[in-house]
Structures are given as structure tokens and as C-alpha cells.
């Protein structure tokens, strides 16, 4: 049987076996695929999601009982400003502070891992591995229970509130993971770049800060923002330790409304939705960062 030969002329045929061009059956997802998609949606998108997600639990739950849909909507409506301005803003604050502390320490630790001094490199490596492989909750408990609730320097007493301890506890695993991101990104730059700048008499420090790190930023952004998202979604665990962030306040709000079971899904559903919606600004910010630091390789 004559077979068509692709790529020569449309009339070309042969009876020999034909090797067809390779077509992959799947496309590997992009690193920032979801962020790109989400950031591409218009500003109406979060509003629509919010209204849909807020309305269905009332509809589903409030049928037949004497506590009506209007009652639970009313309750949520009363609590919503409080939950948002006191609870969720605080959650964001904790995640920002944690990311800030974790990033600064993580960069230092990552550069420490790359140090030519053996002791520094090994110590940084050890610290990184310890905190990268510890359960977050255990670290939180240790920090919560072992840190004093105030410092006294001379006559001034500096109180250390619970949320600050939570920031310290959460920033430890973030720090360790950012340390690995920095180390990995620096190691991914070809050694030829080190040689080229060495042969131009750049010192090690200049090479690292002027040549290598600027090439790494773009590579570090997706994993870095990824860790911010993971961290934000993990912040509710600090509620276990009594920090008054959004989850804790939601529980208190339900208690204040006589613990009505009809309120569970609307209230916790609301928390779920605002966390989901928060990924929208994260996505937009990620895509902006990516453009800002793009390097034409």
C-alpha cells in the first residue's frame, strides 16, 4: 500500500515504512500557568465568584428550618466587616511579615550555603535542612512556648504579642525553603559565567552580586511567589495558638450567634472564598514581577 510522505510534496508516496513527525500528546503545564490565567481575568472575576459562592450555601441550607436563609445571611452580613477588617487584614499582615522575615533570612542563609568558607557553608546547609524538614506546627509550638512574652531592656518593657511569635515561628520553614531557592537558582547559572567574570578580575563578591544574582531573579520569582501562596494558605494554623486572625474570629462569631449549625457552612465558606480570592492579587503581582525581572537568555 502506498503511503503519503509528510513534508516533501503533497503527492509524494512510498510503500516503505514512514516515520511520522513526533507529536506530543500533552503539553507540560507552565510554571506560572494558573497565575497567568488568573491574572488575565478582569477585575469583575473576583466579584462574580464572591457573589456566586456566597449565595449558594444559604440557598442549600436554609430550607425547611425555622432559621431562614435570610437570618443566616443577615448574621453573616453583620459579621462580615469585622471578619474582613479585623480578621483577614490581620492574616495578610502576618503573611507579609512572615514572608519579609523569611525572605531576608532565607537569602542570607542561601548565600551562606554558597560560601567558599567550609564552616559557613556546612552550618547554613544544616540549618536549612533542619527547618525544611520540620513540621510547621511543631516549630510554632516551640516558638510560642519558649519565647518570653516581653523583653526588658533597662526600664523599657517591650511586649512580644502572640502574633509576632507566630510570625517568627512561621518564618523559620519559609526561610529554609527560600534558602534552597537561592542556592538552586545560583547553581543553575552556568559555571562559564563565573569563569568569564573571574577572568575579567571581578572579585567573588562582585561576581555574585553583579553577574550571577541579577540573572537569577527571574528564576526565583515563580518558586518564591509559590511559597508566599503556600504560606498564606497555611496562616490559619496560627489560630490554634490563639492568634486572633480570620479563622479564630469566625469561630468566635459563630459562638456569639448561639452556635447555630446553619451558620457553619456560610461562615466557613466565606473564609474559604476570601482566601481563594486573595490568590487573584497574588497572581497579578507575580506576573508583574516576572515582566519586571525578565532576562533575555
Amino acid at each position: 500500500m502506498k503511503k503519503h510522505i509528510p513534508g516533501i510534496t503533497s503527492a509524494a508516496v512510498t510503500d516503505l515504512p514512514v516515520l511520522l513527525s513526533y507529536k506530543a500528546k500533552y503539553r507540560a503545564p507552565q510554571e506560572l500557568g494558573f497565575s497567568h490565567w488568573l491574572a488575565g481575568q478582569s477585575l469583575w472575576f473576583p466579584v462574580i465568584i464572591l457573589s456566586v459562592a456566597l449565595l449558594w450555601p444559604f440557598y442549600a441550607l436554609a430550607q425547611g428550618s425555622e432559621y431562614t436563609m435570610a437570618d443566616s445571611f443577615d448574621a453573616l452580613w453583620r459579621w462580615m466587616p469585622f471578619l474582613l477588617t479585623r480578621g483577614f487584614v490581620f492574616t495578610i499582615l502576618i503573611s507579609f511579615m512572615t514572608m519579609l522575615v523569611g525572605t531576608v533570612l532565607g537569602i542570607l542563609l542561601g548565600l551562606g550555603q554558597l560560601s567558599p568558607t567550609y564552616v559557613v557553608a556546612r552550618a547554613s546547609w544544616f540549618v536549612t535542612q533542619v527547618f525544611r524538614n520540620s513540621p510547621w506546627l511543631v516549630l510554632l509550638f516551640i516558638v510560642m512556648l519558649s519565647f518570653p512574652f516581653e523583653f526588658t531592656i533597662g526600664d523599657t518593657i517591650i511586649p512580644v504579642p502572640d502574633w509576632m511569635k507566630a510570625v517568627i515561628g512561621l518564618s523559620l520553614p519559609v526561610m529554609a525553603n527560600i534558602s534552597e531557592i537561592v542556592r538552586g537558582a545560583v547553581n543553575s547559572v552556568p559555571t562559564a559565567q563565573w569563569e568569564a567574570s573571574e577572568s575579567l578580575a571581578f572579585s567573588r563578591r562582585q561576581t555574585l552580586f553583579r553577574i550571577i544574582l541579577p540573572q537569577c531573579f527571574k528564576r526565583m520569582i515563580p518558586p518564591w511567589m509559590n511559597w508566599y501562596a503556600i504560606l498564606t494558605m497555611a496562616t490559619p494554623i496560627v489560630s490554634i495558638l490563639g492568634v486572633e486572625e480570620v479563622l479564630n474570629l469566625t469561630r468566635q462569631a459563630i459562638e456569639a450567634e448561639d452556635n447555630r449549625p446553619e451558620l457553619l457552612i456560610p461562615f466557613y465558606g466565606f473564609v474559604l472564598v476570601i482566601f481563594f480570592l486573595y490568590s487573584y492579587p497574588i497572581a497579578r503581582f507575580t506576573v508583574r514581577l516576572e515582566k519586571r525581572f525578565s532576562v533575555n537568555l
Binding site: A192, Q193, E195, A196, S197, V295, L297
Partner: peptide
């Protein structure tokens, strides 16, 4: 070098100027 090893985040002119200015 065989593989040129220019600094990809700098323009041609900046590649040339970097070492004299910084070193």
C-alpha cells in the same frame, strides 16, 4: 572563550564597560 560567555542581562556596551568601571 569558545562559548563567548557574555553576561546575558547586560547590553553589548554594558558588557564591555562593566569590568573597567567596577574592577
Amino acid at each position: 572563550f569558545q562559548q563567548y560567555n557574555l553576561f546575558p542581562h547586560k547590553t553589548a556596551l554594558q558588557n564591555i564597560m562593566m569590568a573597567p568601571v567596577l574592577v
